[in-house]
Design a protein around this nucleic acid. Sequence first.
DNA 1: ATTAAGATTGAATCAATTA
DNA 2: ATAATTGATTCAATCTTAA
Lengths: 291, 291
Amino acid sequence: MQSLDYSHIKNLDDWKNKIFCGDCLEVLQNFPDASVNLIVTSPPYADSRRSTYGGIHPDNYVEWFLPIAKELQRVLRDDGTFILNIKEKAVNCERHTYVIELILALKKQGWLWTEEYIWHKKNCTPGKWSNRFRDAWERCLQFNKQKKFKMNQDAVMVPTGDWAKTRLNKLSDNDKIRFNSQVGSGFGKNIANWVGREMAYPTNVLHLPTECSNKSHSAAFPKSLPTWFIKLFSDEEDIILDPFLGSGTTCVAAYELNRNYIGIEIKEEYYKIALANLDAVKVPFVQNSLF
Amino acid sequence: MQSLDYSHIKNLDDWKNKIFCGDCLEVLQNFPDASVNLIVTSPPYADSRRSTYGGIHPDNYVEWFLPIAKELQRVLRDDGTFILNIKEKAVNCERHTYVIELILALKKQGWLWTEEYIWHKKNCTPGKWSNRFRDAWERCLQFNKQKKFKMNQDAVMVPTGDWAKTRLNKLSDNDKIRFNSQVGSGFGKNIANWVGREMAYPTNVLHLPTECSNKSHSAAFPKSLPTWFIKLFSDEEDIILDPFLGSGTTCVAAYELNRNYIGIEIKEEYYKIALANLDAVKVPFVQNSLF
DNA sequence: ATTAAGATTGAATCAATTA
DNA sequence: ATAATTGATTCAATCTTAA
């Protein structure tokens, strides 16, 4: 991995819209205070196997995560939000408790545990075992620094009624995202202007498919997940941070929504994939500007 | 409330298919060890309002529940299951932590936290607040005494594929339950025999509507919720216990599935409603026997 | 153009096996 | 014993190809 020294970087413009390859704990220490509007991330899951990504043992998960959370707290703006996508493993026929212990520890650290959104994975990994069914949901824990935080509820409204069932269901998710990225400021909102039918506020249950692409890297979460939270908890031109970037999904979503992004990824292999994925979404816009 | 003395009751047959009005901690102390196959309950939610059902303050919830859980552990059979339907309130713009603290405390008490099922409330009550959306899900925590427990996965299989989408969706939930209660041994299983199409195992996310019919009780769950867990974690003739019976939903579900039930309800008002609801489902069978 | 049918792909989990 | 690895299990949503 490349050696990193960010001490020469003075202001935030030098950080915006870049992704970094390095340990997020080290990289974050060079960030200015209260500079980020929204953190959306899916950290490496606890796993006893060494060979896999990260490889943090469940029993050590909280102590590993807390110093990072402290830095996240420092760099987050006071009205900012921290979204943590996580789910505990089943270990020895039991759900491990490291996630709920982490919630308690983060509260001790000063975070407010504002809400727990549920990501219902519509097409989750199949499997059948003697004592449990497929795990079809993950937690999206919302933490804040203070009770008042930025929240654009209208940006994630969803169409209701017959029109939604007859027309919208025929659009694939790719179509929705493609359309959304073209107009830039939220699918639901534009549909509302478009047709003028009823819109409703969503609940704290998100029905999203797991990304089923044929890419080499396994996508941690579908792009629609960070997209939803970015629309909800940030404005355009805000700064979105993902300290465990993986293949770059959060930054791609932020870019397509006209937000500034900062990504950190420790594994050079995934860092390169993230770079490539970001390049891929930027290309069409460059081509358009040449016309 | 009526004065209760159960010390004269010697064997389990004197308890089966009865509901009791009293404090479940006291009533349970008269139960024999290892006598119950499945516990399904939705305890009074923590609430600072005195006027409502129970009225346990969030900060005292764990210490209030633990002695009861100890009795539940004693009366549950070794291969039995304890399903706890619960959801923490938002207090002071934050999710309270009493539920996750309860999970940790129950583990210390010797329970295994086997799984967390999600009840997604399909038609939850509308509402919108400045800092959160509608709460459309509740936890169904599964606890066990040992790793091996009774689980009838086939009993809750669901139809798959086109057939499920085109046909089954047209049946109302009432139709499904009515059919189920007539045949007695599981809706999914019978559909399988009926049509011979593919069946799939469900996930740990349950999509059930909130019951609108039962207006008398405040925190009622839909009958389909205990029905699902009773099918999954018990056989016919097994004993199902609900120590916080409310309006009697669990016992009605157990009765309709040919299980034996035991219910305990502290409030005489709800106890009477539960009695009436049980009478109501038993009446048609009495009438039939007179033909 | 639309639809139908076949192929593909999983941040999974556990029992059994091996180091 | 304990820890790591392998094999068996399972199916909805996409994607691909054919009709």
